[in-house]
């Protein structure tokens, strides 16, 4: 798994309940704003449908690494905090690293304990959407490459 995400997981895992709440709030407060060019693209295509709060995800290629940007309202700090963890932990990772993130990430960072099971399901939708986006970007790259070649 990506080293940055690994570090976040251990930090949250080792925290007690109240520390975990405060860490999540810190993540929510520190999510970097979207670059202006992406701010204009906050449309239905980039919105995570699974999530009741408006969450926007953008995955771009930067060489063999991924640039991940996201936005969620501060009025929904749980969602925004989780999104910020994904951005901070996975920005600059490879597609393989993102796809290798286990779907038990939410359990491993101890969110069910503070959020309850019903609420964390919405969050797993965000991780699922991120992986789908990463897969889509990777497939686009592969098909572009095969389009360039002269293989009959």
């Amino acid at each position: 798994m990506a080293a940055a995400l690994d570090a976040i997981v251990s930090e949250l895992h080792d925290a007690d309940r109240q520390e975990r709440i405060e860490l999540l709030i810190d993540f929510a407060k520190n999510l970097p704003p979207l670059p202006e060019r992406l701010e204009r693209l906050k449309d239905a295509d980039h919105r995570v449908e699974e999530c009741q709060s408006p969450v926007f995800l953008f995955v771009e290629e930067d060489g063999d690494r991924l640039a991940i940007h996201a936005d969620a309202p501060i009025e929904a700090p749980t969602v925004r905090g989780f999104v910020a963890i994904l951005v901070e932990g996975l920005n600059g990772a490879t597609a393989e690293e993102v796809l290798a993130v286990g779907n038990d990430l939410i359990e491993r960072i101890g969110l069910p304990e503070i959020l309850g099971m019903l609420r964390v399901r919405g969050l797993s939708g965000i991780l699922g959407r991120l992986k789908k986006e990463v897969t889509r970007v990777s497939i686009d790259r592969i098909s572009e490459r095969s389009g360039d070649s002269d293989v009959p």
Binding site: E22, L24, I25, P77, T78, G81, I114
Partner: peptide, 9 residues
Amino acid sequence: DEDVLLYDM
């Protein structure tokens, strides 16, 4: 709240 973190903020 729906979002459990809000009270702590």
